[in-house]
Amino acid sequence: MKKGKELELVIAAIEKGLSPDAIVEHDIFLPVLVSNSGRTRQIDVVIRQGKAPRETLIRPDSFGHHAKRVKSFNEVNNDIKDQTTNLYI
């Protein structure tokens, strides 16, 4: 198993321990909010909490397995705007 996948599973286990009702999804495609063409982006891990219409989508960052440096506030903010997630951890 790849190191990145192991980290995804650890994050999923931690989240399920903290919030047993959370749904953890792997390798899903979410719409890009700023795309006029309906483009989607593949996300490694998404944590869903709550029920519609108040569902919260949480996207953990890259876990460091392919990040070369710490992202700036603007980079993180652009990532959030680009995807259909509410929180970015």
Rank of each mutant, 00 (worst) to 15 (best):
I23Q: 08
N36V: 14
V32Y: 00
E55C: 00
E25P: 07
V24Y: 11
G4T: 11
M1S: 14
I28P: 00
H65P: 10
L18A: 07
Q49D: 06
F73C: 09
G50W: 04
G38Q: 07
Q42Y: 11
V70W: 05
H26A: 00
G38P: 08
E25R: 13
P60Y: 05
L30N: 08
E25A: 02
V24G: 05
V24H: 00
K81M: 04
E55R: 14
K2H: 05
K68L: 10
I14A: 00
D27P: 10
K68G: 09
V24Q: 00
T40L: 11
R69C: 01
L87W: 01
I23K: 04
G50T: 03
G64I: 07
S62L: 04
S37M: 13
I23P: 12
K71S: 12
D79H: 04
G4Y: 03
R48P: 08
L33Q: 06
N36K: 15
R69M: 05
P53Y: 11
A67M: 09
N36Q: 13
P53T: 11
N78E: 06
T56P: 04
I28T: 06
D27A: 05
A12Y: 05
I80S: 12
L9S: 10
K16P: 08
I80L: 10
K71D: 02
S62H: 12
F29R: 13
E15Y: 00
R41K: 15
N78D: 13
R69S: 13
N74E: 05
E6A: 15
S35C: 11
S35N: 09
N78C: 03
K81A: 12
S37L: 15
V24A: 04
Y88S: 07
F73A: 14
K2I: 10
T84F: 09
P31F: 00
L9T: 01
E6H: 11
L9Y: 10
L30V: 06
P60K: 00
K68Y: 07
S62R: 01
A13H: 01
Y88M: 04
N36F: 06
R41L: 14
I80N: 06
S72W: 13
A67D: 07
R41N: 06
S35V: 02
V24D: 03
I23E: 12
R59N: 10
G50K: 02
K81G: 11
N77E: 12
F29Q: 01
I58T: 12
V76E: 03
N36G: 15
T40M: 14
K2R: 06
I23H: 10
F63I: 05
F63T: 08
H66R: 12
G4P: 08
N78F: 08
Q49W: 09
I11Y: 00
K68D: 00
I47E: 09
V34T: 15
G4R: 14
A13K: 08
P20T: 13
E75T: 13
H65A: 08
P60N: 05
D27S: 15
S19G: 01
V34C: 06
N36M: 14
R54N: 15
K81Q: 03
H66Y: 14
L57C: 13
A52N: 09
P60M: 10
S72M: 05
I47D: 12
S37A: 15
I28A: 05
G38E: 08
A22I: 12
N77Y: 03
N36C: 11
E15F: 05
S19W: 13
R69V: 09
L9F: 11
K71F: 07
Q83T: 14
V34P: 04
V32A: 08
A13I: 04
D82E: 01
S19Y: 07
I11E: 04
D21Y: 03
